[in-house]
Write a protein that binds this DNA or RNA. Sequence first.
RNA 1: UCCCCUAUAGCUCAAUUGGUAGAGCGCCGGACUGUUAAUCCGUAGGUUCGUGGUUCGAGUCCACGUGGGGGAGCCA
Length: 463
Amino acid sequence: MTPRIKDILLSTDFGSEVMTRGWVRSRRDSKSGFCFLVINDGSCLADLQIIVDESIPGYHESIGGLLTGASVEIRGELVESPAKGQNVEVKATEIHLIGSCPPEYPLQKKRHSFEFLREIAHLRPRSNTFGAISRVRNRLSFAIHEFFQSRGFLYVHTPIVTSSDCEGAGEMFTVTTLDMENPPKDSNGKVDFSHDFFGKRSHLTVSGQLNVETHCLALGNVYTFGPTFRAENSNTSRHLAEFWMIEPEIAFCDLGGDMDLAEEFLRHLLGVLLEDCAADMKFFNDRIDNTVLATLEHIVASNFERLSYTEAIDELLKAKSANFEYPVKWGLDLQSEHERWLTEKVFKKPVILYDYPRDIKAFYMRQNEDEKTVAAMDVLVPKIGEIIGGSQREDRHDVLVARMKELDLNPDDYWWYLDLRRYGSVPHAGFGLGFERLIQFATGMQNIRDVIPFPRVPNNASF
RNA sequence: UCCCCUAUAGCUCAAUUGGUAGAGCGCCGGACUGUUAAUCCGUAGGUUCGUGGUUCGAGUCCACGUGGGGGAGCCA
């Protein structure tokens, strides 16, 4: 295995021989007989400085080829750095060009706009920001599994392709092998999906929730963590057509337990970042958003604010100075401006709203005693807004069927979901966390397209 | 999908009421230096997003298209 720069920088074994491989970030020549070579290998934000003296073999033949972007292998002696900016550096004894890099390399030794970097998504992981994003994303992914696994949750793989068009969480992408130039038609002239691969119209999943409930009612606490697809024509800095979602489902649990888990989960993940990604987080605080470190530290150290939808409406009605564009009235859904007011202005921390009016929420959410609200909850955070949406599920067969009919849903389409309520139903609850929104919030990155390696949005699935 | 803004050198941007296309950074050449996105001097680099229109004349004004950004809705 190639040694990583992250480890070399921590070493104090001066005088020892080291080898490193990576990509040239910068070269500063001195005509007085040596040059500074700055190497990054992605293992950490920091670069490794190499001192290359012209006395080493092949210096004059190869040094000119070590342009920004070139890949190199360096062997040399680990030494204590006499200058500021780094503790250790490497005095090269051998330099090898692995892959040259011509001068038209798009990633220059300067600051680039995120818009431009998006157009070179195949090269942007070599930039400081996207290297940091990649490491944070990786650490959070692992922390999510650590969190659930250490609490006995089972990881369940719910399907990507689904033939139940009853998930109701948004527009879906159709998956088909039919000849789009000449599709089979039925007697009404409509496309006949009975000839399609799965024998009926199929889609990419918009949520693993309905499927994962089956395993919750068999194995206890479970979670999913996978790609999710929404064909909504959403053009915002907070929406992707393909994103990753974490959906735990907790058995024998009510909405209170659901909120407890959501809060503990978020605080745990952000705490891990502060602990294990300190250098990258400092970079985001220095270069992207100078409030992220203070925000994360505050969240880890304090409880979320919890209030019911009804209390939130009262709070918003008191906010005379807000001049909301949209009306505030019990029974209406809260707008972005309302949610942000609560989380940014009133409480200045994450807020969990619960017990929403039944008419503005999904069919599967459990109806409360008042018959006006359902046991739903949203976690709101500053700048992003909704980061988690969840609920206690309706576990009473007759109530669920009645609610479906009320909404003109055909219970026959949901037969297996209803079976869970016929055979040994139990109270259960869960939520969905948008992974990219979590990364956005944690890093301060303004556009969600810059926290996923290859963003898919309307009119763009490049790379 | 709706509203607003926007597209000029490899990148980031400037160009007055419509009148010969400019800078910084990067590249290349040179100078200098235990340097830190080094610094200094110089060279090269352009079908001003596309199509059409107005005009003696369009980077600039108008229409349509496409890409990008911000906001809204939908939501995670």
